[in-house]
């Protein structure tokens, strides 16, 4: 199992480092508000950590899950998931979504992501990405995962797991070698990921964030990753 060192890069974001320019969280609308502001000084950082560990992680689910976003791991919710707050309120932690998942993509949080998120499903695309079979939404009894029919149109319209972003400093095609593996892995084709000169990937508006491109990327660490959409 390979984990990308998310923490290091996120640390640079917090300091407002120039190196953060290759992956921007804020503009996709997917990042938590605290990250959107960009610059974060040490005092603010310490205060946030203190707040999220002492109070928020046990009591307030919103802060707890937001805290986990940048303190622990970058994860996706299964396709069809409603926004973060109603998700925690709707999900009854029954575990059926992973039970029907044919690709073993869905896993469950333990206590590591705060008590509020315990038992809720997540997907780490680099470990095992979603194949958009839409079985989880079908089996979910509560509507935490909305039922979406398995057609190209409804997937494009309704699934919003996140959005892919290319790190041009890592991507082989941007370094002068032809690769294009991510574009071939993409189940949605040109509307989501278009290839240009030397098969350089360009993420389009149709990307739903299934993560197959990130899973398949031959670079280590991966040059394309999904920026989650929790909103």
């Amino acid at each position: 199992m390979i984990r990308f060192p998310d923490r290091l890069i996120l640390k640079n974001w917090r300091r407002g480092s120039k190196r953060s320019s290759h992956v921007e969280l804020g503009r996709d609308g997917g990042a938590p508000p605290s990250l959107r502001s960009g610059v974060m000084n040490r005092r603010k950082f310490l205060f946030t950590m203190l707040a999220s560990t002492v109070v928020a992680e046990t009591v307030n689910p919103v802060t707890a899950s937001a805290g986990a976003v940048y303190s622990r791991q970058r994860y996706l919710r299964p396709p069809g998931a409603v926004a973060s707050d109603p998700f925690l309120a709707r999900c009854i932690r029954c575990g059926q979504c992973a039970e029907v998942c044919p690709n073993e993509s869905i896993n469950y949080f333990g206590l590591g992501n705060g008590l509020a998120a315990m038992g809720t499903p997540y997907i780490i695309p680099r470990e095992q990405a979603c194949v958009l079979c839409m079985k989880c939404g079908e089996v979910c009894p509560t509507g935490a995962l909305q039922s979406i029919s398995r057609t190209r149109e409804s997937i494009l319209e309704k699934v919003r797991m996140g959005r892919a972003r290319v790190d041009e400093s890592l991507c082989l095609s941007f370094q002068g070698n032809t690769c294009g593996v991510c574009a071939r892995a993409c189940p949605l084709g040109k509307v989501a990921l278009q290839v240009g000169y030397l098969e350089q990937p360009h993420v389009q508006a149709g990307c739903v964030g299934c993560g197959l491109c990130e899973r398949i990327c031959i670079q280590m660490p991966q040059a394309i990753r999904i920026i989650p959409n929790y909103a």
Partner: peptide, 14 residues
């Protein structure tokens, strides 16, 4: 108060 289904965490059959 917390907006999360607490019973799921402490209910033994679940």
């Amino acid at each position: 108060l917390t907006g999360t289904v607490v019973v799921a965490v402490i209910y033994p059959p679940a």
